[in-house]
Amino acid sequence: MTNRRTFLNTLAGLAATTGHGLTASPMNDAFEIIQQQIKDGTLESAVLHVRRKQDTFQQAFGKAANADAIFLLASITKTMTATAVMVLAERGELRITDPAMKFVPEFNEGARKAVTIEHLLAHTSGLPDQLEDNAALRARHAPLAEFVQGAILTPLLFAPGTKYHYQSMGILLAAEIVERITKTPLPDFLAREVFTPLEMTHSALGLGRFKIADIVRCQTEHAAPESGAGDPKAASWDWNSPYWRNLAAPWGGAHGSAGDVARFLDSFLHFSGKVLRPETVRLMLQNHSESLGARRGIGFALGPEGFGKGCSDRSFGHSGSTGTLAWADPATDTTCVILTSLPSRISADTILHPVSDVVARSR
């Protein structure tokens, strides 16, 4: 696009830029927040990608080779899995009001009969975030099928639809439904139906065609508890391990570049029709948990809380425990993607939210 301004690489370049919504000073402030963490030795790698209307800023930091560096996206993956489900909904192969047991018949004991696909995608199914034996499963390199069986059998925490409780296992069962309907592994389905149409050439669920050496290293010494919490004994199954990189967990195993994640978000801001129809996008971005005091769409978190201070109520996106945050705001036609190697236990307060605040307030 000839009228797009792209601002890259240097503070000098930043100081010289002006544009339709990305002025030099706010982007310089965002740059400095991240760069200071690099200088302090706290952060190893990051990429920031911001687009507002026709202006784009992108910057690689630290050990990230360039703006196309590929990161483990963690729970941003959930938005992609939800999109795969909605592709099938558009085709009439499922409805989100369908009970999950229609496609997973063995998920039928007690209150499980009442769990719908919508419940799975909006975190209201009653399933837990992680299985009780999560660490043991990962430690022995269990295949994804064992996680599925565990999710089918694990006790529900509450009656479906009565509470909001963030849970990865609901997303896992939604992914299982996609695979059973299409008879296609979810990584292949996403590649064909989402990543390729959106020209997300640096993305894959699992490693895909990439090698571990192609992916930015996670600073696992600060990892989340369910991912080893930095314990050296977890090295064979933590975020950097071949086991986890290849598992293709539909709740947190996607890899991608900041630019690719921005393309994905942009497809929900601007209805290209390459993946989903406008009415499907609107359905996904509606609040499906409003009566439960939460703001959750289909796969997406809904703002403004959790994104930048200054984001509108129409903003949407997701964060990831590996140190990632991606959001979009239709009110300002802005997408912001921050990918870091520093787990969100630390980077949320020091990088992700401060940078998002700068971006959201810039005009």
Rank of each mutant, 00 (worst) to 15 (best):
F107V: 08
T332W: 03
K63E: 14
A258V: 07
A360F: 01
A74D: 11
Q58V: 10
G206D: 05
R95F: 08
Q37P: 03
K53A: 12
L285K: 06
R217I: 11
R112N: 02
V104E: 07
L292C: 05
T81R: 00
Q35Y: 14
F158S: 05
A174R: 03
K309L: 12
D133S: 10
T83I: 07
D214P: 01
A151F: 02
Q59H: 14
K233N: 14
T332S: 15
A100P: 06
I117P: 02
I346P: 05
A328K: 00
V50F: 10
L131M: 10
E90C: 03
T77H: 08
T324Q: 13
I215D: 06
R52H: 09
P105V: 07
L265M: 00
Q37W: 07
A191C: 07
D129G: 13
A30I: 04
G323Q: 00
F210Y: 14
D68P: 04
G13N: 15
P105D: 07
L88P: 03
A360K: 00
H20P: 11
N246R: 15
C311Q: 07
K102W: 03
G303M: 06
S356I: 06
K183F: 09
Y166T: 09
T280D: 08
A12T: 12
L94P: 00
A64P: 00
D357L: 02
A175L: 08
Y166Q: 10
T324H: 01
F300W: 13
E305N: 13
D55V: 11
R112W: 07
R192G: 07
T322G: 02
Q130R: 12
R140M: 04
N3P: 11
R361W: 00
K211F: 08
E32L: 12
L325G: 00
P304I: 08
A69L: 01
R192F: 11
G317A: 08
R140C: 00
Q167Y: 04
A360L: 01
A89P: 01
D55G: 09
I346M: 12
P330A: 00
F189H: 05
T184L: 11
A69H: 03
S203T: 15
P128N: 08
D188H: 13
I96M: 05
I298L: 15
F147K: 04
V261K: 00
L302Y: 04
Y166W: 12
K102A: 13
S203N: 10
V87E: 02
R52I: 10
A258E: 01
A114L: 14
G228C: 06
A204F: 09
Y166R: 10
R52P: 04
P187N: 06
P26Y: 05
H49G: 04
T184M: 15
I177N: 03
A301I: 13
D231Y: 08
V355W: 03
D231M: 01
T201I: 12
G62C: 05
T220E: 13
R282W: 09
N108W: 03
R277C: 11
A348L: 14
R263G: 00
H119D: 08
A159R: 12
L283K: 15
A16F: 11
D329L: 04
T184A: 08
T332D: 06
